[in-house]
Design a protein around this nucleic acid. Sequence first.
DNA 1: GACTTTTGTGAATCATAGG
DNA 2: GCCTATGATTCACAAAAGT
Lengths: 365, 365
Amino acid sequence: MRFFARGTGRVELDVVKVGDCVKLMNDLPEGSVDMIFADPPYNLQLAGDLVRPDHSKVDAVDDDWDKFDSFKIYDRFTREWLRAARRILKDNGTLWVIGSYHNIFRVGTSLQDLDYWILNDVIWRKSNPMPNFRGRRFTNAHETMIWAVKDKDARYTFNYEAMKALNDDLQMRSDWLIPICTGHERLRDDEGEKAHPTQKPEALLHRIILSSTKPGEVVLDPFFGSGTTGAVARRLGRHFIGLEREDTYARLARKRVSKVKPVDDVNLVDTPSKREQPRIPFGWLVERGLLEPGTMLYGPGRRFNAKVRADGTLITRDFKGSIHQVGAHVQGAPACNGWQFWNINVEGKLMPIDVLRQKLRSEMN
Amino acid sequence: MRFFARGTGRVELDVVKVGDCVKLMNDLPEGSVDMIFADPPYNLQLAGDLVRPDHSKVDAVDDDWDKFDSFKIYDRFTREWLRAARRILKDNGTLWVIGSYHNIFRVGTSLQDLDYWILNDVIWRKSNPMPNFRGRRFTNAHETMIWAVKDKDARYTFNYEAMKALNDDLQMRSDWLIPICTGHERLRDDEGEKAHPTQKPEALLHRIILSSTKPGEVVLDPFFGSGTTGAVARRLGRHFIGLEREDTYARLARKRVSKVKPVDDVNLVDTPSKREQPRIPFGWLVERGLLEPGTMLYGPGRRFNAKVRADGTLITRDFKGSIHQVGAHVQGAPACNGWQFWNINVEGKLMPIDVLRQKLRSEMN
DNA sequence: GACTTTTGTGAATCATAGG
DNA sequence: GCCTATGATTCACAAAAGT
């Protein structure tokens, strides 16, 4: 099923289009998307092979799409797609760009020169980065994202309460600790090799989309790649438009996105309330994919149940709040430790959600 | 007491000079400093006052020195001081610059345009940042530093072992958690107000100077401010040159630095690298009688073996060559560090031949 | 089946002395 | 400047393999 955005002519939604992203953006009506997430080529300029101490070869990015002859050419490319993005972005929409020190300074400068107004730079701290094999530099353990609006006075969306709930009731900071994409989440080709060299983790897009869009809004990704943006947008009840140069990746992404089940209830992904959270915020279980939004939780003996929302709160028929508050409410008790009260259904058996917390804790040390 | 750097004419060391940093740098001889740390104005572009939830006023940076009329003017200023810095920096010296999203993209772009080669971008994560009072953005909890050399092929200093030791024997990452400067460390004026609006913590400079300079080298800071760079350089047995536009700050910094006692023992501030230890050819072990010709060497788990020849080569059934070549050959690997691969049999146990090298090294000292 | 050990790998601007 | 020989160097996590 295809959707068309209202009030902007006919803009096909939830599709992956193949072609040059600047041309494809120029075909869209002015002010037709609410948010843009862009993961442009990083222009790595690598020389020669890198070998690990055990003599295995590092499978680095050496694709043609990452090759530029000079900074001048990279700058021209950057300004072109940023200008096209600016036109199709609504006046109160926001733009996210991710990059590394190879390209992010060019991107930031271009943004400012094109009169975008930077709201934050946000650091993705990788919990499991590739080490520096030669011992000649600091381990490159982060990437930088820039969050910007079209104009200094734009009235953009920032779901402050959702971000606070996701961070143990503390303001969300500009440094985010999130693992790189590995394991089941990493898409593989028929030979079992990584299908895309730079697939981003869903947890990263979860936080980005939840922070700066509302349900039903349109997220565009001009460098769609493996389609992480589309998969997360769909799961969170947002629409997406994916633009991708290579047909192989576009097909891969379409297949991936089609498997994602959107949350059926908009309340699960809408503006959350300000609530108390445990020390490991419950929302992190959702963000990190240990729990899907919409998962049913059960009280002891299945006498009670509640549904998980994307921001880490629960909802029942007549009440919503933290795992503790909802647990207390359904029992009519003054207080409740939600971590011990709530369970998930695993092959017919109940398992306390605290097990998931412990799992996450051990993963994060 | 004043020092003068050797071999560069008369360069006065451990002094704070007052004036325009570009002019002062142009007065110094070419290639006269080993490292530059720069904390330039951030060009914050603040509008109006910021008020806390309790209605107290935030004491923000609103000094004249942080005012620029446009990005164009800021870029010109940046390129001027970066060009002057490049001239006085030794070919194998490195440059550190710190900034926030307001200016760091301009700085990074200018660096690349002036042919500096970026080694890392390093994130200073503040453990105690100022919160975002308005709840309209992510808490601005970090600043960005860029570490660069003059040329891609420069042979710069990186004290890998010192950094690893400082990080619990794990490689030092590109994200550093360090508190902002408060308490006793924060310089106060006679009224008890902070004496400088952007005083950097000594812990930050400690890590920077320790990572990329050797004892006795010269660190220059073109925006000296409260003199953190000088204080830490002096304590770590390095020389400094401070340049500062405002006489008030220069006087403050001189007073601060003069109170610092340098470490008396150079061994306390120098972590020698394995790379810098004298090279010991394997044959010397045979020559000096630590290994007899004919001794059998074993690979890990005794899966391989080879015999020592009198000239310091090894021989197996079908191949002979250096410890590295034979190690690579028996494994079918492209390369091998023979010092770590080969072992001798000592009372039934395997002992790496590297132990013998260390023994010989200590005997030669 | 539970537990331990080994192996694989990820956006990386990753060496240097001496002939 | 180029080529060759030597030799310095890895963290977190997951999956597979082994006990």
